[in-house]
Every structure is written in structure tokens, then in C-alpha cells.
Computed example of a mutant assay.
Amino acid sequence: MATNQEEVKLLGDVRSPFVLRVQIALDLKGIQYKFLEENLPNKSELLLRHNPVHKKVPVLVHNENPISESLVILEYIDDTWKQNPILPSHPYQRALARFWSKFIDDKIVPAAWKAVFAVDEKEREKNVEESYEVLQFLENELKNDKFFGGEDLGFVDIAAVFIAFWLPIFQEIGGFQLFTSEKFPKLYKWSQHFVNHPVVKQNLPSRDLLVAFYKSCYQIVFG
């Protein structure tokens, strides 16, 4: 637990899957923190001071020391508070967890985003197909355990929150069927375990809020 001498703050936006990663990790560890909601079109001086390079959330501030980038923050949390580890103890398994988490950020999130918001129809179709291909890699990686790390929630599961909660919203708005129980049975089953995990469930943002937000983004792009 964070001691009385420790101050933990999280600068974030409740609509961000990257912020939600940090919230889940902190709650899994039992760390008390103060959430500071950011208005990203009008960034606070605090955000600009703590993350002058990227100027985006999440930013974890621990005893006035800021840490940026969600995957980096997750590792920092795991290194700082040892209870309920989220990274495997074995070096090879830790390396695999880092690899698949980065794969999600580098391949799955961009492809899914473009599948919804690419203006060119052929570009959208290309990114739907690309999303299918990269999700298949993750489907193949998921064993018969409840989560990627076994029976307990771990690093890759937390990194994959976008797939479990945001991707179904994206495909609803974009009007395509990509992430279904028929196409990805193991991954879909994993997503149900994930969103119903008590720590995840209590931190999930309102689905209606996200649908309304991304529909407004969609209307701005397509009119």
C-alpha cells in the first residue's frame, strides 16, 4: 500500500484506454491515488509541465516525479509496489509480455482506429483486414487459461483493455463485424472474463459516454 508519505496522482481522461490501464494497475496493487481529469483540447499547465514531450495522458505523478506513457507507467507501478505483481517473474515471460503489449499498441490500436476513421473506403477496408490479421496473432497466443498470464490478470491483459472494451464500440460505430465470438473464440471469451473482473469492472467508463463521444468524432470526420 502507498504510505502516508507517498503522494500518487494520475492525470487522465476517462475516455482513454491508456489511462484505464493505469487505473486498473493501481487498483490491483491497492494504491490510493488522486485522479485529475484533463480537458485535452485545453491542456492544463500541470500536464504541460509534467509531460512536455508528448503533452498527453496518462501521466503518473509519484512524490512529484512524473512518468509518462502507459506501458512505461505499468512497469514503474510493478517495480515500485511489489504486491500483486502484473509482470511475470521469469525473464523470458517478462520479455514476451512486453512484446505483446507493444504489439497491441503498434499494430492493433492503429489498424482499428483507421478501420473506423479512414476517409477513403479502400483504406478502411484495408485496415479492417489488417485488424483481422493482427488480432489472429493474439488469438493464437492466448492459451486455454482465463487470462494471458494464466488464472490472474497480468500485464498483457491490462494492455489489451482496448480490445475488450473499445474495439466493440469502434466496430459498432464503423458498421463492421470484426471482433466476434465466431471469428476469435478464445479472444472473445478472454474479453468477457476481463471486463467482468471486479477491478476492471469498477473502473470501466460509461459505455454510453464512449459511444456518444466516438459517434461525434465520426460525424466530424464524415459529416
Rank of each mutant, 00 (worst) to 15 (best):
A2G: 08
T3P: 05
N4K: 15
K9D: 06
G12F: 00
P17A: 03
V19T: 11
V22Q: 04
I24W: 02
A25Y: 05
A25F: 05
L26G: 02
L26T: 00
G30I: 09
Q32V: 11
F35Q: 05
L36A: 11
L40Y: 00
P41F: 05
P41H: 09
K43S: 03
S44L: 07
L47F: 05
R49K: 15
R49D: 14
N51H: 10
V61M: 05
N63R: 15
E64C: 10
L71D: 08
V72F: 02
I73S: 01
L74Y: 02
W81M: 02
Q83N: 06
R98C: 00
W100I: 12
S101G: 14
S101E: 01
K102Y: 08
F103K: 08
A111H: 03
K114W: 02
A115H: 02
V116M: 03
F117G: 08
F117P: 04
V119C: 10
D120I: 11
E121Y: 13
E121W: 13
K122N: 15
E125K: 15
N127H: 01
V128T: 04
E129V: 12
E129F: 10
Y132L: 13
L135C: 07
L135Q: 07
Q136H: 12
F137E: 12
E141C: 13
L142M: 08
K143V: 11
K143P: 03
D145E: 13
D145W: 07
F148V: 06
E151A: 05
L153G: 01
V156S: 04
I163Q: 06
G174R: 01
G175M: 09
F176E: 03
F179R: 01
T180N: 06
K186S: 06
Y188L: 10
Q192R: 15
V195E: 10
V200M: 12
Q202Y: 06
P205W: 01
S206F: 06
D208F: 03
L209V: 13
S216Y: 07
I220Q: 15
I220S: 12
F222R: 15
F222T: 13
